[in-house]
């Protein structure tokens, strides 16, 4: 099984520890992981701004680098969603189809492909899970609170494998954090307000560490936490699963 690790641009630049944790975790679980060195981005920033034509070159670049892998794994539901959902505007060659089908969020790969049932790590903290929207409602990594279906969450299932962890229940289980890519800059007032409200929910439940499957949500939330000097730590789920302590 050939696994290609896709590290989204902003994780590469700002959060290498998340990429390292993802890589280590996959290797610990016995995967042979390759990291195509010329990778950049999935193209979402342009496309979500309405300029998907400007993203086409990036799409082709991505496909060229990753099409030979059995699985393409990324610690970001949002970027995975973008590849799977929005690479529909380029010619659907075998390579493109393969890439779209086989690009998985880390949690999907761990549970659906590797069928992970136990983990070695421990994380004795009160943890609040932020259900990132593109993972939750785009990739259906769990049941959104809107839907009348059996409750399910891949991220929660994985976190429950970690020893000592205490997962809190939030008063709004899956409200958006307000990041939304360029939305954060186009509508800064609402974006920040949404972030503040999410943080307040976690804070009121005594959360020590806030986690998510998407670092972009956490980047936004952490930026507010730091500005407001709140006493909450932020960790990507890959770090917690890999046993990185705060």
């Amino acid at each position: 099984m050939k696994v290609g690790l896709f590290i989204p641009c902003y994780i590469d630049q700002f959060y290498p520890q998340v990429a390292i944790a993802s890589l280590e975790l996959l290797e610990k679980l016995g995967c042979q992981v390759a990291y195509p060195f010329r990778q950049t981005c999935c193209g979402q920033p342009m496309a979500n701004t309405g300029c998907e034509q400007d993203a086409v070159a990036t799409y082709h670049h991505f496909v060229e680098l990753f099409h030979a892998f059995d699985y393409i794994v990324a610690p970001s539901g949002s970027c995975v969603y973008h590849v799977r959902k929005h690479y529909d505007i380029i010619e659907q060659t075998e390579a493109v189809k393969r890439v779209r089908e086989n690009t998985l969020d880390l949690s999907e790969f761990l549970l659906d492909v590797l069928k992970v049932e136990s983990l070695d790590s421990s994380f004795p903290y009160k943890v609040g899970l932020h259900q990132s929207c593109h993972g939750l409602r785009g990739l259906r990594l769990g049941t959104g609170s809107e839907r009348v279906l059996e409750k399910d969450s891949k991220l929660q299932a994985l976190l429950r494998l970690v020893k000592g962890i205490e997962l809190v229940e939030l008063s709004r289980a899956d409200e958006c954090c307000g990041f939304g890519g360029t939305f954060a800059i186009n509508e800064p007032a609402i974006s920040v307000k949404m972030g503040k409200d999410r943080i307040a929910d976690h804070e009121s439940k005594g959360v020590e560490v806030l986690t998510a499957g998407d670092m972009s949500c956490l980047m936004h939330l952490e930026s507010i936490i730091r500005r407001q000097q709140k006493n909450i730590k932020v960790k990507h789920i890959a770090e917690i699963l890999n046993g990185v302590q705060p």
Partner: peptide, 26 residues
């Protein structure tokens, strides 16, 4: 607009790519 009510991320010395090159001896 980002920085009005938010901090910018604290950039690491090394990107993941740079770390990978160093540690995986590419």
């Amino acid at each position: 607009e980002w920085g009005k009510d938010r901090e910018l991320p604290e950039p690491p010395r090394q990107s993941f790519k740079e770390w990978y090159r160093e540690n995986k001896r590419l």
